[in-house]
Design a protein around this nucleic acid. Structure first.
Length: 283
DNA sequence: AGAAGAACCTGCCCGC
DNA sequence: TGCGGGCAGGTTCTTC
């Protein structure tokens, strides 16, 4: 699934065709994704204008003219397809319905937005816009890594005395919201911290150094997503993952990219999830 | 309370 | 060609 940069890229791709437009028709093709859809979801969406698309962590929130917001999570395999686009941003034509097209919005400007999710770990819900942050899925999220709340002192405080591995700590959405497996690996590599190192035993100085690195890793990835969006305009309307090069993620056995380092990247399984790291550069 | 593991699903890739 | 095993970017729930 998309981590924060991919979700932000999806949001940016959807905004031009959805913001200011109304949902003329909503097709809900199954009763649930990870959880049941809210009651009468199609009816509650039909006729609603999308005033704004925003993002909180890995969730997209569509604020509607009805006073409700549509919450969207892409899970592991969720994608958005934009087609029939009258603005000329995407050249893809109306595709035939495909397997796992679970929800389809036809906007009153002629755009069609299709949510496709093979593994169905994704989710959609409707909630009152004015109390969105109280939603169970959002209430316990930590600070946005690109926002002011995510500071050196916050991270130092959050990791103090923790016995969990650094990898697990940065994946914990209560500590910082939006990182996933890929960008945690990349941030730890850039900081020279071993993924298995106990969080409480990394010096405050090194923990603090992680904060700007996390921001940079995410900002770089969002920039790469932006360039992939321009490519979509020439290819198809598919929004989800994008081509991006990583220093360690997925590179087991490949040479470390640190100048002068001759080690190979290794893979380690922690809590059932792969971590990639350089045994020489990360301690 | 904190940390590790299982569970939720489908698809793809590899080796036999 | 088919089948089994392992893998996948998330999150919650259960268990220890």
């Amino acid at each position: 699934m998309p981590e924060l940069p991919e979700v932000e890229t999806v949001r940016r791709g959807l905004a031009p065709v959805m913001e200011g437009a109304a949902i003329a028709r909503a097709a809900v093709n199954r009763p649930d994704l990870r959880w049941p859809f809210p009651p009468d979801m199609a009816a509650r969406l039909t006729g609603a204008r999308v005033d704004r698309l925003r993002r909180r962590s890995k969730y997209i929130l569509a604020d509607l003219s009805t006073g409700e917001s549509l919450l969207i999570h892409l899970g592991m395999s969720g994608r958005m397809l934009v087609s029939g686009d009258p603005l000329g941003l995407f050249v893809h034509d109306h595709p035939a319905p495909e397997k796992h097209d679970h929800v389809v919005f036809d906007m009153d400007n002629g755009a069609r937005v299709t949510f496709n999710d093979p593994r169905r770990f994704g989710a959609m819900d409707l909630l009152p816009t004015d109390s969105a942050e109280g939603h169970p899925l959002l209430a316990s999220l930590g600070p946005e890594p690109l926002g002011n709340q995510f500071s050196e002192s916050h991270l130092v405080e959050a990791l103090k005395g923790r016995n969990m591995p650094m990898k697990s700590a940065l994946l914990d959405q209560k500590i910082v919201a939006g990182l996933g497996n890929i960008y945690v690996c990349e941030a730890l590599f850039r900081c020279g911290i071993h993924p298995a190192r106990k969080a409480g035993r990394v010096s405050a100085r090194r923990v603090a150094a992680l904060v700007p690195v996390i921001r940079a890793v995410l900002t770089d990835a969002i920039a790469a997503g932006g360039s992939s969006l321009r490519d979509f305009r020439q290819a198809d309307g598919e929004l989800g993952y994008f081509q991006h090069s990583f220093d360690v993620y997925g590179r087991e056995g490949a040479p470390c990219r640190t100048p002068g380092c001759s080690q190979e990247i290794r893979r380690l399984v922690q809590s059932g999830r792969s971590s990639f790291y350089c045994p020489a550069c990360q301690r």
